[in-house]
Design a protein around this nucleic acid. Sequence first.
DNA 1: GATGAATGAGGATTCATTCAT
DNA 2: TATGAATGAATCCTCATTCAT
Lengths: 206, 206, 206, 206
Amino acid sequence: MSIMSSQPKYQRRKEDRPQEIADAAFAAFAEKGYAATRIDDVAKRAGISKGLTYLYYKTKEDLFKAVVKNVVVRRVDTLIGNVESTNLSSEDFLRGPLLDFMKQVPGSPIAIVIRLLISEGPRHPDLVDYYYENVVARGLGAIRQFVTRGVERGEFHRDALQYQPHLFLAPMMLSMIWRLIFADKPLDTDQLMESQIEMLLAQLKA
Amino acid sequence: MSIMSSQPKYQRRKEDRPQEIADAAFAAFAEKGYAATRIDDVAKRAGISKGLTYLYYKTKEDLFKAVVKNVVVRRVDTLIGNVESTNLSSEDFLRGPLLDFMKQVPGSPIAIVIRLLISEGPRHPDLVDYYYENVVARGLGAIRQFVTRGVERGEFHRDALQYQPHLFLAPMMLSMIWRLIFADKPLDTDQLMESQIEMLLAQLKA
Amino acid sequence: MSIMSSQPKYQRRKEDRPQEIADAAFAAFAEKGYAATRIDDVAKRAGISKGLTYLYYKTKEDLFKAVVKNVVVRRVDTLIGNVESTNLSSEDFLRGPLLDFMKQVPGSPIAIVIRLLISEGPRHPDLVDYYYENVVARGLGAIRQFVTRGVERGEFHRDALQYQPHLFLAPMMLSMIWRLIFADKPLDTDQLMESQIEMLLAQLKA
Amino acid sequence: MSIMSSQPKYQRRKEDRPQEIADAAFAAFAEKGYAATRIDDVAKRAGISKGLTYLYYKTKEDLFKAVVKNVVVRRVDTLIGNVESTNLSSEDFLRGPLLDFMKQVPGSPIAIVIRLLISEGPRHPDLVDYYYENVVARGLGAIRQFVTRGVERGEFHRDALQYQPHLFLAPMMLSMIWRLIFADKPLDTDQLMESQIEMLLAQLKA
DNA sequence: GATGAATGAGGATTCATTCAT
DNA sequence: TATGAATGAATCCTCATTCAT
C-alpha cells in the first residue's frame, strides 16, 4: 500500500533452503523410512509449508535422491582424503585413524543411508550406482592403495595384496546392521573392529 | 458364447492356502519391500482374490510377521542342529560345514528377511525380538559353544574364547548386504568368507 | 458305504429353520442394528453356516423384512384380540389389561422393531406399510372402538370420541424411545403411563 | 479444446468449510442414515472432494458427532432460554410458547437427531450422554422449574409437582416418531399436543 | 516466493453373495 | 441340504501433488 513499505515481504528467504529441506528429509527418513515419511513431516521439520518443498524438489523421489547424494557427498571426500594423505606407518594408520573412522560409522548418517539403500535401492538403480562410484569404489580403492603402499614400503608382505579390502570393513558393516536392527541389544562393536584389525595386521605384516 | 471358457471361477480349495499366500507375500516383499507391496500383488501372485488373503491374515502386518517367522522357522532349526551335532574336528568343521552354510546365506531367503528387518524392524519390535531370540542368539550361542568345545579339546588355545562370535559372521553379513544393494557388482563373497575363516583359525589354533 | 447305513446324513434338518434364522437375525439386529449386523453373525447365532442362510433368504434385505413381519405377526393378533373381547368396564379395562400391556411394550421386541423401522424404514416403504396396516392401524382402531363402546355404554361422555387414540399411547412411545436411547438413565415409565390413563379417564368419564 | 471450460478446478477457500461439510453431512445422514451415508455423498453435497472432508473431520465418526452436537447446540439454548425468561402466566405459557415450540419440533432437525441417536446411539455412548445433558436434562429441568413456579404462584395446586415433566412431551415424542416412520400417513399432531396440554392444565390447575 | 486448502488416485479392509464340494 | 472357501464390489482413509491466493 504505502510507498515507503520497503521491507521485502519474505525477508527470511534463504539461499540454503534446499539444504535445510534435505536435512529435514534426512532426519525424517532416518526416523520412519522413506515410504512412511510424509512430505508434510519434512516440511514441518524444515519449518516451511508443504508447498514450498515442491519448489525445490519436484517429487518425493527427487528429494530422496538429493538426500542420499547430499549426505554422501558431504562426508566422503574428507574421509578419503585422510586416508590418502597420511604419513603414518601402515600399522599405526590401521590402528589409529582407520579404526577411529570405522568406529564412528555405525552411529553416523552413513548408516542411515545404508538403511535407505537397502530398503529403496532396488527402485533407484541410479542412486545405487552413484553410491557405489562415489563411496564404495573410492573407499575400497583407498584401502587397496594403502595396502599396496604398505607392501612397497616393506611393511606388509607380498601376499597381502590378495586380501580383499572388504575384509577390513566387514565388522564395521556387521556393527552397522546390528545397530540398525538391534539398537538396544548390547554388542561391543568397537572391540569387534579392533580384533579384525589385529587379525589382519597379523596376517599382513611381513 | 465363447468356444471354450475353461477357467473355473472358483479355483481350488486347500489348506495350504496360508502357506501359498505366505510364499507369494515373501516373493512380493522380496521384490518391492513391505511398504510398496500391495495386498493385491500378493493375491495375484498366489492366484487368489484379494479378499481371500484376509481370511487367513487379518492385516497386512500380520501377513508380514507370518512371512518373517515362516522363513526363519523353516531354516534355522536344521542349520543350528548341524552345528551342534557335528563330530568333525573344529578346524574341519569351520572349513567345511560352517563355511558352506555361510556361503549360501547371502543368496538365501534369510537375506531377504534381513532386508525386511532393516526396513521395517523399527516398526515391529516384537518381530525383531523374535528374530533375535530365534536366530541371532541361537546362532551366536552355537558358535560360542563350538569355540568352547575347541578349547576343551585342546584344538584352540585358551584366549580363543575372547573372540566374539560375531567375528565369524562379519564377512557373511557384508556379503549379504553387498548383494542386497549391489546385486550386479562383482564380489567374490566366497573368498571373503574363506579368508576370514583362515584368519580366525590362525588366531585360534593353539 | 454300508448298506445298513440308514441314518440320514442330516438328521437335524428342521422344518423351522427359517424361523430359527429369523430369530437369530432379530437378536443380531437388536444388538447391533441392521447395517452393522453381518450375515455371519446371524448364521453363528442360528448355529448354521453362512451359506445356509441364503437357502431361506435370498438377500440380507429379505431377511430383514422377514424378521420385522415375523415379530409383528407373532405379537399383534393376540394382543388386539384381548382388547376386542374384553368384558370389563371401560375404566377397569384401561387401568387393567391395557395398562399392563402398555407397560411391557417398551421392553419388548416391539421396541426393537420400532428402532429398526426408524433406522431402516425410509429404505423399506413396503415394510412401513405392512407395519402400519397390521399393527398401528389395527391398534388405533381397537382403541377407537373401545372408546366408542364406552360412549355407547354411557361410561364416557359424547365428546370422548374427539380424543385421538394416539393420546393413550404417547407415554408408551416416549418410554420406548427413552429406553432405546437412554437405557441406563432412570425413568419411572410405568408411572408415566398410569398418570396418562388417569388423566384420560378424568377427561373421558361422563 | 472445448469452447468454454468455465469450471475452475479449485473452487473456493473458506473457513466455513467445516460448517458446510457438517450441513451436507446432516442432510445426508437425514436422508440415508449414518451407516448408509458415504463420505463421498457428503463431499459431493458440499461440493468438495472426498479428501477435503478429512481435513476437517478425522473420521466419519468425528463428523457424525460434530453434526449431532452442531444441530443440538444451535437449537437448544435459545429454546430453553425462552422457557426460563417468560413472564406469562403458567396457563398462557403452556398454551402459547411451549405449545408452539413443541409443535415445530417433530418437523425440525431435532427429529433427525433423534433418529440418529436411536440408530447409532448404542455405538456412541458419549454422544448419548452429551445429548442427555445438553438437551434432555435441561429441557426436563426447565419444565420442572416451570411447574414449581406455577405452584409457588398459586396457579397450580401442590400435587402438580408429582407429575413427571415427561408427560408434557409425550405427544411431541409420538408425533416425532410418527413422522419419522409414517411421514405420509395423516395425523393431526398439533391437536395431539393441544389435547395433552389441556388435559394437563385440567389436572394441574388449583 | 510462500502458504495450505483442495484434489484424486490409490490402497487396506469388509462383507454380502456365490459355488465347488 | 449344508458347508465355508472364495470372490469382488464397495468403502474408509491417506498422501503426493497442485494451485488460488
